[in-house]
């Protein structure tokens, strides 16, 4: 697995606030990495650094390039979708296709047309006449037709309804993703990404608090649901977090012995959302 992104000690300050505070992580090729964190954790700053839109201290290499210095070279191999609002509203669909085909050396028009043919988007419409879901599909059609090594998605489904969100990720997985490509995605809707991601990257207050593959997460983290009688025994095993739910106690463990937990109650695989809450609140405590 080749390393696509290598970040070491990324630091970025805006005035008095530290958006990134020594964040280090790597992203290998062929992975789908979820960059997840609370508001203001530094997600967008990290993405901007990867895209060469913001200068950071520390070292950062994307596809072997310094993204800030070689932004134009990088833009040929990296695609980017910010939230749905960034396609200019005056642009017509056919103009968008013509323009990207005109300026991008790795754009394959036939693929874009193929994808659009499956939608109800008219070529003569302006972006302002399309629904949010259609705008996202148009943007996705443009980006999927670019033969890029890395696709960066920043809250790509923000403000979309469930159907559009599902259609977005379905297209991404079935039409875009292959072993040669890598996706780095941030979102608040973690539950949608549960079955898509191969890697998790949690970021909180500018620091990386979890950097793991989903397989390792499954081995390392456990959720235990017990009755009140077993709660003290469960606490003795040093859970990351504890909460009560309808009279049951729910514990989340890192690196605990699964068999020992099994004695105390029902052991499950924690969801990303549960893990996120445990990790971020644990860090804050």
């Amino acid at each position: 697995m080749a390393t696509l992104i290598e970040a070491k000690d990324l630091t970025k300050t805006y005035g008095a606030t530290r958006a990134l505070d020594g964040a280090s992580f790597t992203v290998g090729s062929g992975r789908i990495v979820g960059l997840i964190g609370p508001n203001g954790a530094g997600k967008t700053t990290a993405l901007k650094a990867v895209l060469g839109l913001a200068r950071c201290e520390g070292s950062l290499s994307v596809l072997g390039l310094d993204p800030y210095k070689d932004r134009n070279e990088l833009a040929k191999r990296v695609s980017f979708i910010a939230d749905v609002a960034v396609l200019p509203r005056w642009l017509k669909v056919h103009q968008a296709i013509d323009f990207v085909a005109g300026v991008h050396p790795h754009f394959r028009r036939d693929r874009c047309e193929q994808f659009l043919a499956r939608t109800s988007i008219k070529r003569t419409s302006r972006v302002r006449e399309l629904s949010k879901g259609m705008i996202t599909q148009l943007h996705l059609a443009l980006v999927m037709a670019i033969d890029a090594k890395l696709l960066v998605l920043d809250e790509p489904t923000l403000g979309l309804d469930i159907l559009s969100r599902k259609a977005f990720y379905d297209s991404l997985l079935s039409d875009y993703m292959d072993a040669e490509r890598t996706i780095l995605v941030t979102t608040h809707q973690v539950e949608e990404l549960e079955n898509i991601l191969t890697d998790l990257l949690f970021i909180d207050r500018g620091r990386v608090v979890l950097d793991s593959t989903m397989d390792d997460v499954a081995l390392k983290y456990h959720q235990l649901v017990t009755g009140p009688a077993e709660a003290d025994a469960a606490r003795a095993l040093k859970p990351l977090s504890e909460r009560q739910l309808l009279g049951r106690h729910v514990f989340l463990y890192e690196g605990a012995d699964a068999e020992a937990l099994d004695q105390l109650g029902e052991v499950r695989q924690p969801s990303i959302a549960d893990l996120f809450v445990a990790k971020i609140q644990g860090g804050a405590a």
Binding site: A75, K76, S79, I81, A82, V86, P88, V100, P105
Partner: peptide, 17 residues
């Protein structure tokens, strides 16, 4: 205008200096 409507993020995602 491109900063106001954030479309600069789209234009900057393309390999144009």
């Amino acid at each position: 205008g491109e900063r106001r409507d954030r479309s600069v993020l789209f234009w900057k995602s393309l390999p144009v200096s």
